[in-house]
Design a protein around this nucleic acid. Sequence first.
DNA 1: GTTTGACCTCAACTTATGTTGAGGTTGTAG
DNA 2: CTACAACCTCAACATAAGTTGAGGTCAAAC
Lengths: 147, 147
Amino acid sequence: MRGNELLTIGDLARRTGLSVSAIRFYEGRGLVSAIRTSGNQRRFLRSDIRRLSFALIAQKLGLTIEEIGAELAGLPQGRTPTLADWNRISRHFRAEIDRRIALLERTRDKLDQCIGCGCLSLRKCGLYNPGDVAGGEGEGPRFVLHR
Amino acid sequence: MRGNELLTIGDLARRTGLSVSAIRFYEGRGLVSAIRTSGNQRRFLRSDIRRLSFALIAQKLGLTIEEIGAELAGLPQGRTPTLADWNRISRHFRAEIDRRIALLERTRDKLDQCIGCGCLSLRKCGLYNPGDVAGGEGEGPRFVLHR
DNA sequence: GTTTGACCTCAACTTATGTTGAGGTTGTAG
DNA sequence: CTACAACCTCAACATAAGTTGAGGTCAAAC
């Protein structure tokens, strides 16, 4: 960074903690876009630091690059996200987190039942496939966690 | 399955819900092992249904194939898992689930704070990197969720 | 004006978890 | 005893999310 308003890719990497190659990759996927110097080097806006910060947080929550791109598509390039932007995206994140917590809690409850019931009988276990003992049909344990 | 005690790979696939190719893959990774007929076809024990059921449940919890292999290594091939086996593995699963729930709850709390504080100021937000506003150093948002 | 670190593109590689297909063999039902 | 579904191996492909390297260019500090 040279005191002017635009960031090189290296600047952006230092400010976000991302690698240079990852930023190029994200540019390819549309998470940020860069203007080019006459010599074909990328220059980024300061607001791209925030875009990539969003991306990193979202990624921690398990969103794919594509999903993150979809969220970010609502944030016009070069504008600092407003409170409304942030709230909209936050609500998605919040819902996603809640969904995951609920899934894990259901799984934990099943597991606890299973530990409690000594279910190596394989008869009543919510985790095991009853078909194992009961007969030759049924869906198989792949489908048993009832997500 | 022909009424005798050994299962073909197709039998095992039907009983577990796995694909034949996945079972071959798992065999290569040591999750199950097969005996061979004189004509080189695999034959599995009934207890392998349970091994693979374990594997599928563990995988839902996010364990890698390698980690699952490590768990299963404690279950001697060809023996039906005992209650003690099951309890030991269940405790690992339980702990893993709890760890994940706790992580998500911490993230959710941070997110709630962040929504509440209107933190587009980028000053007090636990999710954003303060370095963005405060100066040129700091770790970057990559490290901000404090897992 | 030269040097040198930072930048450029493009292709190939990485890891995890499998799937798909080609080309060939087995085993069992009729 | 033959037909044919099910099996075998091995290699290549698929996906996500990048990294690494080769070969070459830019820009800014001296």
